Computed example of a mutant assay.
Amino acid sequence: MTYSRPGLGAVLFDMDGTLVDSERLWDVALRELAIEYGGSLSDAARVAMIGSDAASSMRILHADIGQEWRELGPSQAWIARRMSDLFRTGLVWRPGALALLSAVRAADLPTALVTSTARPLVEVALDTLGRENFDVVVAGDEVRAPKPDPEPYLLAAQLLGVPIERCVAIEDSRAGVTSALAAGAAVLGVPSEVPLDPIEGLHLLESLAGVDLTLLGNLLVRAEAL
């Protein structure tokens, strides 16, 4: 498929902390699991998990509470069950996220949801986000190398049939920003739980409130000029 449309070609959205305020829900579940295992999750370990896939997060948790011997599978299953309950009742849109997503869809621009969360939980979240709002969904358990590797964003662009250089990725985490920049997308960072360092190629805003298609298009122009 040859993509010939000029300017902004697609918008690639992260989910947790970017579109929805779900990091606080992950915080609840992860701290509960640490307590279930007789430990206490440190703030440093929790911050290290943000933007990571489930397996990486469980490794961090196990190491943090001194139980590296634990198998990943049972811990991932426990978190998945708890997060499924929390996602059904507690997902809230981040400021400006729904308005921007609606504007992108109204402009008939291709969209992708690119998340480190596993597909079963993504399916629960899509009840809030709207399945019709995304042409492609790339979940954390559907790639060989999750964020911060560029594979998730490269795969999303490939599935959309849009060159990654014509895509804007919207992220809140260091791992996600690293992934999107390495893939070659223009990147808008809207930090949620942890600050993002200003780096070359990253445009930082406090939130998505007021972000429109003109701003996203300008990010591509700036990226091309670098």
Results as ranks from 00 to 15, higher is better:
W26P: 14
S52R: 15
A34S: 00
I60N: 02
S22C: 04
M58K: 07
A10V: 12
A34C: 00
S52C: 14
I65Y: 01
T18P: 14
R59S: 11
V11P: 14
G9R: 02
D64T: 01
R46A: 12
W69H: 15
V11M: 04
Q67G: 03
A45R: 06
G17T: 09
Q67K: 14
Q67A: 06
H62N: 10
S42M: 03
M15L: 11
G38I: 05
E36P: 00
D53C: 13
D27Y: 14
A10L: 11
S42H: 05
V47M: 09
D43S: 11
R24G: 11
D16K: 07
R31M: 03
D27F: 13
E68D: 15
L61F: 06
S56D: 15
G38H: 09
R31A: 02
G66K: 02
A10E: 07
L61I: 03
G39V: 00
I65P: 00
L25S: 02
I50D: 04
V47A: 15
A44G: 10
R70I: 09
W69Y: 13
H62E: 07
H62Q: 12
M15V: 05
E32K: 05
D21Y: 07
V20L: 08
S56K: 15
L30T: 09
G17W: 06
L12M: 12
L41P: 00
V28A: 04
R46I: 06
V11F: 01
D27C: 14
L25H: 05
A63L: 10
D14W: 03
G17F: 05
R59C: 09
E32H: 04
E36Q: 11
S52I: 07
S52W: 06
D21F: 07
A55V: 11
L30E: 14
L30H: 13
G66E: 05
F13C: 05
M58C: 07
I60R: 06
G39Y: 00
E23I: 03
I60F: 09
L41R: 02
R24S: 14
D53S: 10
E36C: 02
W69E: 13
I50A: 09
G51H: 10
A45M: 11
R70H: 08
M49K: 03
S40L: 13
I60P: 03
F13A: 04
M15T: 05
A29I: 08
I65R: 00
D21L: 06
A10R: 08
L41N: 01
S57W: 09
Q67P: 09
M58F: 15
A34L: 01
H62I: 01
S40H: 13
D21P: 00
D64I: 01
T18I: 11
G9T: 08
L61E: 05
D21V: 02
E36G: 00
S57L: 06
S22H: 08
E68L: 03
D53P: 04
V11Q: 04
A44K: 13
S42P: 00
A10H: 07
I50Q: 10
L30R: 12
L41S: 01
R70Y: 06
A45Y: 10
H62S: 11
T18G: 12
D27P: 01
V47R: 15
A55S: 12
L30N: 14
H62V: 01
A54G: 05
E23C: 03
S57H: 07
A34V: 00
G66D: 05
